[in-house]
Amino acid sequence: MDKQEFLDKVAQSVIDSDEELAEQLAKQALEEGMDPLEVINKGYVVGIKQVGDMFECGELFLPELIQSAEAVKKATEILNEAIAGGEEKKAKGKVLIATVEGDIHDIGKAIVVSLLVANGFDVVDMGRDVPVADIIAKAEEFGAQVIGTSALLTTTMVRQQELEKALVEKGLKGKFKTVVGGAPVTVRWAEKIGADAYAENAGEGVNKIMQLLEG
């Protein structure tokens, strides 16, 4: 098997959510003296990206996405240990996620959290029905770079506005980037309240957060 075939097999193990094979290939790569970073970037990352695309198209679902992410996590742990200096691949960013106070809907948020974790972000999920003050306190403690809030109801989306106001009042507006989402939320709403980004769906949420962190 040549190198490209091996890397394709690595990517396929992620697409198939085959945790055992993904780990076995990581060990094999080390035994054969391959560059661990190359195997991560051209094998496992390629696989998880394709999993994300398939999830977006509705060809693969949340449990499979999570299993694939878990396979990548375990395999890359093996490879990270072998990387010179023992330096682990750094998380892409620190994101705090919550469903706003008064809103008990958490399925959409769970998908966003899973996708972010699958894409290598360090995520704190505060759950649902979370007051603005608690979100800010936790963001400070965690050292979040991005705060993402979800609201499923027209009656609770005002909490996203309250968060923006509170961040301005506390002089924290520049410290944390904010992303808003949820069924009744639109780009117009995000602009109106001063949020840094709006995401139509979970996949877009990940992309918007990446853009915010790059910007």
Partner: peptide, 16 residues
């Protein structure tokens, strides 16, 4: 149990 909490923790069978 709440699947929305179990799934992000990787507890897939429990969530199902």
């Amino acid at each position: 149990e709440n699947a929305a909490e179990l799934l992000p923790m990787g507890k897939i069978e429990e969530a199902k």
